[in-house]
Computed example of a mutant assay.
Amino acid sequence: MTHILAAGDHFVSPEFFIHAVRSRVPELDLTFSGLTLPWPHEPFGPVDTVDEASGTIPELIAALAGAEIAVTQMAAFTPEVFRQCPVLKLISVCRGGPVNVDLAAATAAGVIVSFAPARNAVAAAEFAVGLMLAAMRRVVATDSELKSGSWRGDYYAYENVGIELDGSTVGLVGYGAIGRIVARILIAFGANVITYDPYADPAAIAADGVEVVDLPALLRRSAVVSLHARLTPETRHLLNAENLALLPDGAVLVNTARGGLLDYTPLPALLTSGRLGALALDVYDIEPPPADWPLFAAPNVIMTPHLAGATRQTAQRAADIVGDDIARYLRGERPQHVANPLVFEGLVTGSVR
């Protein structure tokens, strides 16, 4: 009998995980326990050696008693957890990267870590395009002003009207799963899509009808720039004051990826001067932003609270992806999405435990 901890939250519930696993291996004798973490009713944050985690270490250790497998989105798997839970053999994290797991500690403990790439790709891509349209056409500002009793007919003046996606050049910084879907949507709108991604296959990108350029060329040519890169030490502040100065006057900038990709310091001045036409943000370098954050007072800014990936389909898809990998593990097969594959090889040869 295998015991599994389903450490869910108020987005992907323990019941989602339990159903996803049980429905894939109904013939196996499995037992489950559940733990509901407080996210998103309480913000996630760093816990010991991991990031973007929810809950406490003591409650997780207690819940893991006897569990060979743990499935979660936000639980914090730190070195202390691995020290206290020697039975644990697999952690399956239903997000694009297992940032809430200390991968080095998991590997040292012989614990496989799997994850769920592209679980929210469709949701995030649709949201990014929605923010583009809202920013380009002043949807949020005009809605707010009309509701407050102001009918701004002057927005119809040529110098105040927005631009269309059809015929515009849109630059995508990053061309992974999300960027590729964004490109497909934009091409359907009639946009000319260019991208900068030094890690992607240029031939595959060209086959999608997208032009590959370097970052300076992308910034100079794009009426709209949308960020879809991963945050790494190399990409932190990838768009800084020097790069932002390359944007054409009135350009629209959208960030639904990670706050650290963007240097926020020069943005208020660029917006006030009109050099940057509009800014749409779903992610921030500090979440939530402090009350005195300068961009709250800047013009032509749309802000949403890190919601791009939040759809019901994302929650279900996340559970399904990790359910598939747990089922593979239980059948003695290699999970499809493994962050530390050498551990799996060691387990199946009996050299780790």
Results as ranks from 00 to 15, higher is better:
Gly8Leu: 05
Ser13Cys: 01
Pro14Lys: 01
Pro14Gly: 07
Phe17Arg: 04
Val21Gln: 03
Arg22Glu: 12
Ser23Tyr: 09
Arg24Ile: 13
Val25Arg: 03
Val25His: 01
Val25Gln: 02
Glu27Met: 05
Asp29His: 09
Phe32Ser: 10
Leu35Thr: 10
Thr36Leu: 03
Pro38Gly: 02
His41Val: 08
Pro43Asn: 15
Pro43Tyr: 15
Thr49Trp: 09
Val50Arg: 03
Gly55Pro: 06
Ile57Leu: 08
Ile57Trp: 05
Glu59Gln: 11
Ala63Phe: 10
Leu64Lys: 14
Gly66Trp: 07
Glu68Lys: 15
Ile69Lys: 09
Ala70Pro: 04
Ala70Cys: 14
Gln73His: 07
Gln73Phe: 11
Ala76Pro: 15
Thr78Glu: 12
Phe82Thr: 06
Val87Glu: 15
Leu90Arg: 10
Ser92Pro: 01
Val93Tyr: 10
Asn100Tyr: 01
Asn100Cys: 14
Val101Gly: 14
Leu103Gly: 12
Ala104Pro: 09
Ala106Asn: 02
Thr107Gln: 09
Ala108Thr: 10
Ala109Met: 03
Gly110Pro: 06
Ser114Ile: 05
Val122Leu: 09
Val129Tyr: 00
Gly130Ser: 05
Gly130Thr: 08
Leu131Tyr: 01
Met132Thr: 11
Met132Ser: 04
Leu133Thr: 10
Ala135Ile: 09
Ala135Pro: 13
Met136Asn: 11
Met136Cys: 15
Trp151Asp: 10
Tyr156Pro: 01
Ala157Thr: 09
Glu159Pro: 02
Asn160Arg: 15
Asn160Trp: 01
Gly162His: 08
Gly162Pro: 13
Asp166Asn: 15
Thr169Lys: 02
Thr169Phe: 10
Val170Ile: 11
Leu172His: 01
Gly176Arg: 01
Val182Gln: 02
Arg184Cys: 00
Ile187Glu: 10
Phe189Leu: 10
Gly190Leu: 04
Asn192Gln: 11
Asn192Cys: 04
Asn192Trp: 02
Val193Thr: 11
Thr195Gln: 13
Thr195Ile: 12
Asp197Ile: 00
Tyr199Arg: 14
Ala200Cys: 09
Ala200Asn: 12
Asp201Cys: 02
Ile205Lys: 05
Val212Arg: 04
Leu215Ser: 11
Arg221Pro: 13
Val225Lys: 10
His228Pro: 13
Ala229Thr: 12
Arg230Ser: 11
Arg230Asn: 12
Arg230Trp: 08
Thr232Gly: 05
His237Met: 00
Leu238Val: 01
Glu242Phe: 01
Glu242Ile: 00
Ala245Thr: 02
Leu246Glu: 03
Gly250Ala: 13
Thr256Tyr: 00
Gly259Gln: 03
Gly260Ile: 00
Leu261His: 07
Leu262Cys: 11
Pro268Thr: 00
Ala269Cys: 03
Ala269Lys: 14
Leu271Val: 14
Arg275Tyr: 06
Leu276Glu: 08
Ala278Gln: 11
Ala280Cys: 04
Pro289Ala: 14
Asp292Tyr: 06
Pro294Thr: 06
Leu295Cys: 07
Pro299Leu: 04
Asn300Tyr: 11
Val301Ala: 08
Val301Glu: 00
Ile302Asn: 09
Met303Phe: 12
Thr304Pro: 03
Pro305Asn: 15
Leu307Gly: 08
Thr314His: 00
Val322Leu: 08
Arg328Ser: 14
Tyr329Ser: 07
Arg334Lys: 15
Pro341Ser: 14
Leu342Arg: 14
Phe344Gln: 10
Phe344Arg: 04
Leu347Lys: 08
Ser351Ala: 14
